[in-house]
Every structure is written in structure tokens, then in C-alpha cells.
Nucleic acid binder design. Structure first.
Lengths: 337, 337
DNA sequence: TTTATTTACGCAAACGTTTTCGGTAGATAG
DNA sequence: CTATCTACCGAAAACGTTTGCGTAAATAAA
């Protein structure tokens, strides 16, 4: 069985390889008649151009990489959805890599990607990442990068985020309005920019409402869920006066629910809870969870579109192209409404 | 800035391209001394081999494709996690494609992939797919494929699934044990093999317990969630005698919850519900949802491992390599326990 | 008529890697 | 002193595409 490539096509058509290639790319240097002949045979034999040969020659892979901490998280799942959609529309392929919030893995992935396997990169940095040299070096390799959600402030490029500060502020104020006097903040990891923004919103909302921020009420989560549950349990036992919880990330809100159920703390009577979450079932929880919901799909899609624009034009991505998409606060029963 | 490739390396080292290539691949035809020299310079200059050149020459892409209906679904998210893990361990990359349960899209994706972009394919077929010619043609293109979860019985290859029939049987019997006399089955789509298996389990459990199956109690879901809600509402209103619901897929279980809340049907007093689900928060729902939980991560990982074994050995994947991983039934309050 | 210009196509060189087929120098064996 | 072997290395041909350049014929302009 002879392979079906430009060579075999050209032989059957009595044309040169060059002409067949041009015909398939609809070049104006080929007569309409030949184009018809070529296309007919190509589709009859189900010809598919070899992506790697093409990529090698054109130095373009029509592929973008997505590097995220994990996918088993509704936010990232939705974001991928948006990314894939945008990529598909522009004829791009999507390579996916999970860091599991591990710095070493993130570095090794990025290093590999510099080999030209991707034309551009979308990224949500790992919580463990402190050093950004590996990201900076992407610039040298001429691979544009766009951050989404968990951005890296130190790198000069476009970032797609939600209004983290305002959301943190709103969430906290929502708890205060609901009557909370001692509000704990469960945040992802203290070296993540979005965590810091949300935390600053929390702090500012407290002081704006004459409540003194108390570092003892701030807990930063870890990777392991069971460990988080233990930490939250300890926090609630140590500070029985806590009557409000603001969780910066879905996982911690869920864990807080578990601990409250376990400790027989009634929600919202004893403790009110609000958390960042993209959980569809949030309204079906016991009680329905008040959420700040990020436009995850749009964040992914927007980030991909910005990246693809840069890739297509072979221009660098600029910080000025950054976009902030607003989250929505859904007040439900867990905060008393 | 000169590019860093084999040519530039070889020039700086006063070696031939061939030797540099061999040194980096740790060939025995190169002296240890030269290897050290080569590796030193390569890592100093952060040399990354061009993946496309290598793929073109070796006719191997070190990439697998994953084609799934959607990612915003806990099952698939977890499966991807397992897939990525297995791929990473073997040095493979993962391309991801979403069909959104659309046959046309699935076909076009598969067609593109025959260009040699991937060494193998993992797939969960779209619910709309009836014709399998596009999948069969992968055999001709010599691209091995392994199905997981939503398999295609007509294609001769390995499949990784859960024990769908038994799970459907168990779930139904669980409802019967809980006292249900009129059990509805909400299934994904009637032309999906897993739906059929689960449905057969449902039917057999009914007859084994002297309950006559009633086609009027069987509803097959559609793509749109709101539409599903409407369908379920209509079903519950038309058949007020329904006292048990078995949902073959997470989305439908959630929708059933919404409808029950809306119609003031008490769970589990009026209606008992059990559903396939990988939702972490299932235990936190109101009331906690009884679930049949598939080992999603393991299903993805196992499927990937089988595929990669075949790819590495350049052998076809056999049906005999199929694996069935058991789901677990978690009895919670929604079925009265 | 001659001279430009256009149209349609082919030749051959890239792209960066891997691999086959040698080739040379030195060591060992006969 | 030749023959065989081993250990290293290089030249060059692939892999399938794209593309700059050349060119013949056909047409238009002079």
C-alpha cells in the first residue's frame, strides 16, 4: 500500500510536487482546472498533509500549549472548554499539561515546550512557583505566553483575570452585611497573586467596616484536601467566635462545609460561608452555597483569543492587552439570604 | 542570535551533526569523553531538539490524542488527569479535542488526526455518533485507538469501561430495597452503549424483583440542560406515582434535584434518587446524593497505559486487552439511608 | 514586428533530525 | 607482515512540506 502524500499524488496526476502542494493551498499560481483535478484525487484518497513536515518547514505548529495546575476543578475544566473552542475556530490544536501545583514539573514542561512544539502558551502558574526564570526564557525562545487566572505579575505579557480584589471585597462585605463579626479567610496559597488580591479585598472590606483584621483568622490551604479539612477544623475549634468564612477557592469552601457538618456548626445560623466556586451544584448544597463565580469559560476563551491573535501576527503579546472579566456574586442560603 | 540546533552545536564542538545527535541519544558509537563534551554544551545552551524534525524523520510523534464529548464534567476531568499522568510518565504529550457530542465535529477531528499528528487515540464517542466509518478508517491509517467509558462496540479494539450493567442493576435494586415501586430511569442517550448496558441492568433488576418495566418511565436526556429540566418536570408531573429515580449520568441527577426542589417533592420521602456521579460535593448536597461513582482517574490512566503499550511496541490494540473497572455505590440520604 | 507582462508550472533547496553506510586509526591475531 | 576486529566518527540520504527562482508559452503593449 503506497503512502498517500504529495509525492504519490503528483505522480498519479503527472504534476510536480510543488504544483500539487500549491493547488491544495489554493495558490493563485495554479490554474483552476488543475486545482480541481488535484482536489478530486486528494479527497478521493483521503489525503491528509503531514503536520510535522509542514510544521518543520514553515516553523509553525498550529498548536498551543495549556499549562495548568489541575483539571479536576470546575474552573479549569470550563476554561479549557473556552480555550479549545477558540483554538478550534482558528484551526489550532491544544496540548495540555498538568503541573499539579509542582514547581519542578512546571519548569520541566516549559523547558520542553521551548523546542518549538507550540506556537504559544496559555498558563495558570503553579502555587509553588516562586522563581520565574523559566517563564522569562520563553521570551527568548520567541514563544508568546498569556496568563489566565493565576497570573505571574513579574512577566511582561497579557493577563486574563477576574476582578479578584473587588470580588474579595464584595464577598467580605456581603458577610459583614449578613451580620458577621469574625470573618476567617481561607486562601489558596500566599504566594499566588490572585490570593493576595482577594486577600487585600478582604482586608480593605474589614477596615472599611471598622473591623480589625486579625492574622489569626487567615489560613492558607495546602495541596492535600484531608490536610485542609484538619486545618479548618483546628481553626474553628481554636476560634469558636468565627461566624463567617470567606473561601478563596472552591476546594476550601467544600472542606469548610464538611468541617461544619462534622462539628455540628449550623450554616448559616452559626457560621456563614461564601466561596469562589464554579460548581453547578452550588445551589443544591445543604444549604445552598453563596458563591463568587468566575466567568471561567470566557476567561479561557479570551486568553486563547489574545494569544492566537499574537501568534498569527507573529507579534509579542503586550501587557496592555490584558483583560479583566468580572465575577458574579450569587447570594444563597449559606450567607443567610 | 544563532539558532541552537544540532548544526550549531556540531560547529562549536568541531564534530559532525551525526555524532552530536548520537551523543545526545547516548549511542554506544560515541566515546564517553565526547558525550560529556556534547552534553555540557547542549545543556549550557539549553538545547531542545526540534520535536517536529524528529517526528518527521522517525515517523513517531510521541503524542496521543484524546477525543471526548466535553471536559466540564467531573468524570472526564478526572479521566484526563489519569491520561495525562500515564502519558507524562512515558514521555508522551496529550492533544485534547472536544466533540460537544456532535458527530460532524467528531468526524472532522478524527479525519485530521489521520495526518499522523498522533501516535494513538483515546476516545469516548459522541452520543450523536451512529456511523463508525471514520473510526474504522483509523485502522487503515495504522493509528491505534482505545475507547474508554463511551465505547464503540463495532470497532475491534481495547475498551476500558466500568461495570455498567451491574451498576445499573445494583442502583435499581438499591432503590427497590429502599421501598420504591415506580422507578424512572433517566439515561444519557439511547444509542450509547453504556446507556444501553445500564438500562439493561435497570430492566433486569426490575423483573428480578417482580416489577414490570414501563417504557413510559424511561427518559433519554438531550444536550441542553434546561431542556432536560423541562423533560424531567413533565415526567414527574405526568407520573406522580414515581417514587424512585435512577439517573445514568450526573447532569440528569442534578437536574432531577432541581426539579424536585422546584416541585416541592421531598427527597427521599417522596422520591428517592440515585445517580452516576463523580461529584466531590455529592455528600454535601441537600440531601446527600447516593451515587454510583466510577473510578474515573483509573479509567483514564488504564486506557492510556494500554494505548501506550501498543504504541511503543507498534502493535495493534486487541479487544482482549479490554479492562472493566468497578464502580462503587455510595448509599446516602437521597435514597433514605 | 518586437518587447513586456502574465499565467502556469517545474526544479531544487531548504527545515532539523535520524540513520545507513561507510571509513580510518589503532589494536590484536595469525 | 598481513588480516581481522573494534572503537569512533563523518558524509549523505532520507522524512514530507513549502517556497524562491527559473522558464516556457500565451497574451498584451509598443
Amino acid at each position: 500500500m503506497t503512502p498517500v502524500n504529495l509525492k504519490s499524488l503528483s505522480e498519479q496526476l503527472n504534476l510536480s510536487i510543488a504544483t500539487v502542494s500549491r493547488a491544495l493551498r489554493d495558490s493563485h499560481e495554479v490554474s483552476e482546472a488543475t486545482k480541481v483535478r488535484v482536489r478530486a484525487l486528494a479527497s478521493a484518497l483521503h489525503y491528509e498533509p503531514n503536520a510535522y513536515a509542514s510544521s518543520l518547514r514553515r516553523n509553525i505548529s498550529k498548536t498551543i500549549g495549556v499549562v495548568i495546575p489541575k483539571v479536576a476543578n470546575h474552573f479549569f475544566a470550563l476554561a479549557i472548554n473556552g480555550i479549545e473552542e477558540a483554538a478550534r475556530q482558528s484551526g489550532y490544536h491544544v496540548l495540555i499539561y498538568l503541573t499539579h501545583d509542582d514547581y519542578e514539573r512546571e519548569m520541566s514542561i516549559v523547558q520542553h515546550l521551548k523546542g518549538g512544539r507550540v506556537d504559544g502558551l496559555l498558563m495558570s502558574v503553579a502555587s509553588g512557583t516562586q522563581d520565574f526564570a523559566h517563564l522569562r526564557s520563553l521570551k527568548d525562545a520567541n514563544i508568546p505566553i498569556v496568563f489566565f487566572d493565576r497570573v505571574c505579575a513579574e512577566i511582561e505579557t497579557a493577563k486574563v483575570t477576574t476582578n479578584d480584589y473587588e470580588s474579595g471585597y464584595q464577598a467580605t462585605e456581603h458577610l459583614i452585611q449578613a451580620g458577621c463579626r469574625t470573618i476567617a479567610h481561607l486562601l489558596i496559597s500566599n504566594n499566588l497573586s490572585i490570593g493576595q488580591f482577594r486577600h487585600q479585598g478582604y482586608l480593605d472590606a474589614l477596615t472599611a467596616n471598622d473591623q480589625a483584621p486579625d492574622p489569626d483568622l487567615v489560613m492558607s490551604g495546602v495541596m492535600d484536601n484531608e490536610q485542609n479539612v484538619a486545618l479548618i477544623r483546628e481553626l474553628l475549634l481554636r476560634r469558636p467566635d468565627i461566624d463567617g468564612i470567606f473561601a478563596s477557592v472552591e476546594r476550601l469552601a467544600i472542606s469548610a462545609y464538611r468541617v461544619c457538618h462534622e462539628l455540628q456548626r449550623r450554616i448559616p445560623e452559626d457560621v456563614k460561608i461564601i466561596g469562589f466556586s464554579n460548581l453547578e451544584a452550588a445551589a443544591l448544597l445543604d444549604p445552598p452555597l453563596s458563591t463568587i463565580t468566575q466567568p471561567a469559560y470566557d476567561i479561557g476563551r479570551e486568553a486563547a483569543k489574545i494569544l492566537l491573535r499574537a501568534v498569527e501576527k507573529k507579534k509579542a503579546v503586550l501587557s496592555t492587552q490584558s483583560v479583566v472579566l468580572e465575577s458574579t456574586l450569587f447570594a444563597r442560603q449559606s450567607t443567610g439570604s
